[in-house]
């Protein structure tokens, strides 16, 4: 009998096989080898930079020469408590809170519809409709609102046609939120922030709602709850972790943004802009670093609270 040349796997001892055997025997080795490059990049380059930033926040600037004094001090952090600086922080936190709230209100109906009613093609369309704006260009979106909110722009034109100009004027004449026009008011700024972060709010709420089994809603109805009662007592509480998860994004993104406030809103600075100005034209890296630590601390507390609300299960 002529036999077909067929090496049993054992007979082949190529280098790759021997290497594979080693990797198979020590599976930890493979995981380690795979992790080393990403960890070098993120752990050394990125975390290293973050630590460098943190260290700089403990330096101070010499007020006369303007040079950085590389000695440990808490002086820079104390500067954060100056009224002007504290005002920046509190104002930014207020806007972030308002933006988070507005996004949640706008996001809920979309998420609710997508999770509970949309099926098949509609569902896919909804998904694309929510995700596309998430990924499309940030600057273009900001620019779009600059066009819309301009004095001679589409919103003013639409309000005029609908006879709603007095209403817009009334809104703009409100203290604090108002301003000469929408594009230079806090109102307009918050609106655009809410627009920018809306998809970040919709997706976690939708995910949380989708995890509510339909049988739960039916059980509530079966037990005698009217639709409104079911919504308040079953659906809404179960959607809350999703809102909390979404708010992590809306809050964090608002705290750190410094592009939008340059283009839309009043001329007073928000936290992000302050950092940018301090490290750039002012050259006060230590104070910029201290300011940058504020969102990290705020988000640390925020994440801790959100975790207790179950937000991390909603991604």
């Amino acid at each position: 009998m002529t036999s077909v040349a067929l090496d049993p796997p054992m007979a082949r001892e190529a280098l790759s096989r021997r290497l594979s055997s080693v990797l198979f025997a020590k599976r930890g080795l493979l995981v380690t080898l795979l992790l080393v490059p990403p960890l070098l990049w993120l752990g050394v380059v990125y975390v290293g930079s973050l630590i460098a930033l943190l260290i700089q926040s403990f330096f101070s600037i010499d007020e006369f020469s303007g040079t950085i004094v590389r000695e440990f001090t808490l002086k820079t952090y104390a500067e954060l408590l100056r009224p002007a600086n504290l005002d920046v922080i509190l104002r930014t936190l207020a806007i972030a809170t308002f933006v988070t709230f507005a996004s949640a209100v706008l996001a809920f109906p979309i998420a609710y519809y997508a999770a509970r009613y949309a099926r098949g093609r509609t569902k896919a369309t909804f998904y694309i409709a929510i995700v596309m704006p998430l990924w499309s260009s940030y600057l273009v979106k900001v620019y779009a609102w600059k066009l819309l909110l301009a004095k001679e722009g589409a919103v003013a034109w639409g309000a005029d046609r609908l006879g709603a100009t007095p209403m817009v004027d009334a809104l703009l004449s409100m203290p604090f939120v108002g301003g000469p026009s929408l594009s230079v008011s806090y109102l307009g700024q918050a609106l655009v922030f809410a627009y920018l972060w809306l998809p970040f709010m919709i997706l976690p709420i939708q995910a949380a709602l989708e995890r509510v089994p339909a049988s739960l809603i039916e059980a509530s109805a079966d037990l005698g709850a009217a639709p409104g009662q079911t919504f308040r007592t079953v659906t809404l509480p179960l959607a809350l972790p999703g809102v909390a998860a979404g708010s992590i994004f809306t809050f964090s993104l608002t705290l750190g943004d410094y592009i939008l406030p340059q283009i839309i809103g009043p001329s007073t600075l928000l936290l992000g802009q302050t950092v940018y100005v301090l490290q750039g034209t002012a050259g006060n890296i230590p104070l910029a670093a201290a300011f940058a630590v504020v969102p990290i601390i705020v988000m640390g507390f925020y994440l801790f609270a959100a975790k207790r609300l179950g937000a991390f299960d909603a991604f």
């Binding site: 930079s49 993104l253 940018y276 490290q279 940058a292 969102p295």
Partner: peptide
């Protein structure tokens, strides 16, 4: 983390 933190950290 907000992009500004990544940015300023890398810059410094």
């Amino acid at each position: 983390l907000p992009g500004i933190i990544t940015g300023i950290a890398l810059r410094s």
